[in-house]
Design a protein around this nucleic acid. Structure first.
Length: 260
DNA sequence: ATGGTCGAGTATCGA
């Protein structure tokens, strides 16, 4: 039996975070890291810098916005950019999958949605429905599958600092939560909640207004594991320390250790 | 939550 440590982190510009990410890899020691919002074109992704740290890497991005990546030091094969559901290409670079250490891993950056009822909100819901179709087309819940990333959804009211502050806002609506539950009904479970059923810990804090220091956050970065892996989750952690200090991302990484 | 910051790129927009 080996322990595989998988992590997800919305880095909010990998270019700006190229000091923080290698520093974090050195102390957090993940075997697999999924990143979101690299905001890089594929040609600009620093594969060599990560290779020097012992990680193979794959990236799907078009520069400026979005962009997702996977790093792995336990093998990285069969990379697939975007949806493999037989439909057309997505309008953004928000999904990247690969097989790492025998686990089918996906790095996802779910659309923000901006405002309830907007076309961006409709795109968010459609994107989540398509992610479920992609899962059905590419994997089975009895296989080792991890879907992790920035879901831009707080699964429950206890995943936001004050539910009343989010009345009428995105990230907490029944429609978004239903779309997330449809992924879970396919056969995925929230690994953080397996370990910490009631903890009020967050993964994202707005840069503005001292939200981080005032604990005004949301838990929107999730590591979803398939039924085959649910019993192998050893522990999970949100690394708040990575949100502190010089030039932090507005998201903290989430780590999960799996006993494979 | 009055707004309050970042990062894209270089005027504003997105989160």
């Amino acid at each position: 039996m080996a322990t595989v440590r998988i992590a997800t982190w919305n880095v909010n510009s990998l270019k700006v975070r190229m000091e923080r990410v290698p520093e974090w890899l050195a102390y957090a020691c993940p075997d697999i890291l999924c990143m979101q919002e690299t905001k890089l074109a594929d040609a600009a992704f620093p594969h060599m810098a990560f290779e020097a740290l012992g990680y193979e890497s794959a990236h799907h991005g078009s520069g400026q916005w979005n962009g997702v990546a996977i790093l792995s030091r336990v093998g990285l094969s069969h990379p697939v950019a975007g949806f493999a559901d037989g439909g057309g290409p997505d309008q953004g670079a928000r999904l990247l999958s690969a097989v790492c250490g025998g686990v089918r891993v996906s790095s996802v950056y779910v659309p923000n949605g901006r405002a309830v009822g907007s076309e961006h909100y409709a795109y968010k819901l459609a994107w989540l429905a398509r992610l479920r179709e992609h899962l059905s087309a590419t994997a089975a819940p009895g296989q080792p599958v991890v879907v992790c990333g920035d879901f831009n959804i707080a699964p429950e009211d206890k995943d936001v600092w004050d539910p009343a502050a989010f009345a009428g806002a995105t990230h907490v609506t029944p429609e978004e939560r239903h779309a997330l539950s449809q992924l879970e009904s396919w056969g995925l479970v929230d690994a953080f909640r397996l370990c910490w059923p009631e903890e009020r810990l967050y993964t994202y804090w707005d840069y503005r207004a001292g939200d981080f220091h005032e604990h005004r956050g949301m838990r929107i970065d999730l590591v979803l594991v398939s039924e085959a892996l649910a019993g192998k989750v050893r522990w999970a952690l949100v690394d708040r320390n990575a949100r502190k200090g010089k030039q932090p991302s507005d998201h903290a990484p989430v780590l999960v250790d799996l006993d494979l």
